[in-house]
Nucleic acid binder design. Structure first.
Lengths: 295, 295
DNA sequence: ACCTTTATACTCATCTTGAGCATAATTTAG
DNA sequence: CTAAATTATGCTCAAGATGAGTATAAAGGT
């Protein structure tokens, strides 16, 4: 059985990060590696084009997963090589879903998400208390505090996968909950696609800190607030406006177009564009955005 | 054909980073995924144990590669899932090689390595000049400057793979050089194992900046200079002694054992140990070592 | 006793970062 | 038309991190 090539396409629309899905949001675009594919990545691109009509730009390999072994079929094991693709939604495309529909607790920009985390913390506290041993209970409590930023530890937006796996272990998501047990809000997906999505979110959140990939998600011209909202949407965290502008400005990654934004309410904002020349022309020490991790 | 599991085992011995090889240094430990393997990682661990007797600790997935398609065999394509493992050399083990034997230009702590980079820069300049077009030539020159830190750009120790690929394209390594053409010093390996090693080096150099993985390569107790030499060996770059100590100290990652180093020449140094408790106990914002990238 | 070697403690100037104040230029409500 | 609301943008300030260097301590070797 050839390995499966699986793609997580991400775009940001109306300040919401979106993921391209199939089958009513239960699947990601994917298909097997075939003999004619020139490489893994081109194979993945072909499947995405065929299934969604979308032609990809910036792509990077994410992770390779394997199903648990199946005794029935000797060689019947599914190995999936996953990719992260950053792109823009084209008008009329269907299947795009807000990624926070799958991970509502990951949106810490709104009070809803913060409340949900408090609720989760309580549920996980109960889970820690019913651990088989005291030591195990303490280990669980520590993991909860670390991944969900309790007990004075701050929220780390990159721990998307760790949080999902913790909830899975605790039986708080439909994938692992006993029948009839209460589960957290959030859509689930087929097989382990939700885990793949979590991996993609974590990688993207980490990457915007040290590479200017955020511009792959922006239109040609944009205001600084639009850029900030996009970063906040991806990171799931609010940030300080003036400092954001200062950092972005001193990175030298953008330049003014000379125009100002049309539709606007307050003072009109200047429009900027990404300076594509800087890629390759010099070391991009990071479009390291003002997303400091908490102390 | 099942995917191949391939392992890059790294240790540091006498302040030299070493990689565990087979077949006279031409191969890395590897073997196919089998039906009985519980997961990709356990399969890889089993193969390593079987081929080298080495039991692994810290492991992470690196990258998944595929050979070019082979028309002859329809399903005969090799897909390799590679892993990075950090460990320590045990006495009597054979097959460990200095990783700089494969990538001599990556060692920028010694004058030899710096001289070699100058030589490479000249050779690549010639390569840029004989480009098919002026634009292509300029693009080549820019890549050379960026990856080898020429023209005022500093040396970026994480660009191991980019440098190797550039040398490959330019035909300066035996893997790609025309027969009889002069090639750079440095051992090559079978298939694309040298590329896998380059990927591992790049990943490790990046990782020691933000996770305290360097301690996976240290013995139980060590002096601060020993720790510094180990980091320098991995990064291939020298650093400022006093500042190194300051950073390491304020990270709170280590504690004194109360003893001092035996064999020593100057003033005896205090011995330290890694505080394993801190893993998991709190956010490790990075054992971010004084390895600033050049501006 | 003096030199070499390594360890360790401090200092200082410069950047970076987080937080906030102040002002400008619009639209909207009354 | 005026005031309030809204968004943009410029600037300051303190704390902390970083890069570079000076100074002193503790050992062995000649």
């Amino acid at each position: 059985m050839p390995p499966e090539l699986i793609a997580v396409l991400i775009a940001v629309s109306d300040d919401r990060p979106m993921v391209l899905t199939l089958e009513g949001g239960r699947l990601l675009p994917s298909g097997p590696l075939e003999a004619g594919h020139r490489s893994l990545q081109t194979g993945m691109r072909l499947w995405v084009e065929q299934q969604t009509g979308h032609v990809l730009g910036h792509v990077e390999q994410l992770y390779t997963f394997a199903d648990a072994p199946v005794d029935l079929e000797p060689d019947g094991r599914r190995v999936s090589i996953s990719y992260l693709a950053l792109t823009r939604i084209r008008r009329g495309e269907r299947g795009w879903r807000d990624w926070y529909a799958y991970f509502p607790w990951e949106d810490q920009t709104a009070p809803d998400g913060r409340d949900l985390v408090l609720r989760i913390a309580r549920a996980l506290d109960a889970w820690a208390r019913c651990a088989p041993s005291a030591a195990e209970g303490e280990a669980r409590r520590q993991r909860v505090a670390l991944t969900f930023g309790q007990e004075g530890l701050g929220w780390d937006d990159e721990l998307v996968l760790q949080r999902y796996e913790l909830l899975w272990e605790a039986g708080l998501v439909p994938e692992s909950a006993p029948p009839g047990a209460p589960v957290l809000p959030g859509l689930s997906m087929a097989r382990d696609e939700r885990r793949v999505l979590a991996t993609a979110m974590a990688r993207l959140r980490a990457k915007i800190r040290y590479r200017p990939v955020i511009f792959e998600l922006m239109p040609d011209s944009f205001t600084l607030l639009h850029l900030q909202r996009t970063v906040e949407a991806v990171a799931g965290q609010p940030m300080h406006k003036q400092n954001f502008r200062r950092l972005v400005a001193q990175q030298g990654l953008i330049e003014e177009t000379g125009e100002v934004a049309p539709e606007t309410r307050g003072r009109p904002a200047r429009l900027f564009r990404f300076r594509r020349e800087v890629i390759g022309a010099r070391r991009i020490a990071g479009s390291k955005l003002p997303l400091a991790r908490p102390a």
